[in-house]
């Protein structure tokens, strides 16, 4: 595989994507496959073929929940979850509009919370997510119940060494 993206995938994910021979065991066991526009085996093939644009615009890369079922069963020991991580990062890096902005909104809100406190503060994180995803009404009942059950604390807890946390973010390019 010689396109820049594909070499990047093999080096960064450490996964031998070139070995995939299309047995489709990954797709057969994937819990999310119905939500994918390209099943995991196809994603492997698209990487081999260098179909970069299509891949980075795909919904598949955002729908993978990293359950690692496929990677556990792959006869060529390709873990697809880390491959998906590299693809997602590349999508964002190239400024491509993610096919599932909601997921990105959640993850961005989540890591912003970590950057701020060193830990996640659910209340502010969820609020931020609602603003970003504009899904204000979804799961309001669930949120309220959680709050009433004492599962969403109002005050955030913080890590001690926040400057080190910020440094980790900076080093990762955030």
């Amino acid at each position: 595989m010689s396109s820049p993206l594909l070499e990047k995938i093999i080096t960064e994910s450490g996964q031998p994507v070139n070995l995939c021979y299309q047995c489709r065991k990954c797709s057969a066991g994937c819990p999310m496959v119905d939500e994918f526009d390209f099943p995991p085996n196809m994603v492997m093939r698209m990487i081999q073929l260098g179909l970069e644009g299509e891949l980075l615009r795909s919904r598949a890369i955002w729908m993978c929940v990293s359950c690692e079922t496929c990677g556990t069963r792959c006869p060529n020991q390709i873990r697809i979850a880390p491959v998906m991580d590299v693809l997602r990062a590349e999508c964002l890096k190239q400024g491509i509009e993610p096919a599932d902005p909601t997921t990105v909104a959640l993850h961005t809100s989540f890591i912003e919370s970590i950057r701020q406190f060193g830990r996640v503060h659910e209340a502010t994180m969820l609020l931020k997510y609602k603003f970003k995803s504009k899904k204000f009404t979804d799961d309001l009942d669930v949120g309220l119940k959680l709050f009433l059950k004492g599962k969403i604390p109002i005050m955030p807890k913080k890590s001690r060494n926040l400057s080190k946390i910020k440094e980790i973010f900076t080093k990762a390019g955030f």
Partner: peptide, 21 residues
Amino acid sequence: DWCCCGAASAHNLSSSLALGL
């Protein structure tokens, strides 16, 4: 001292952030 492990969000956006946290 400890910080958030990054949960799913860190590795979804950046493997190096996830590894760092």
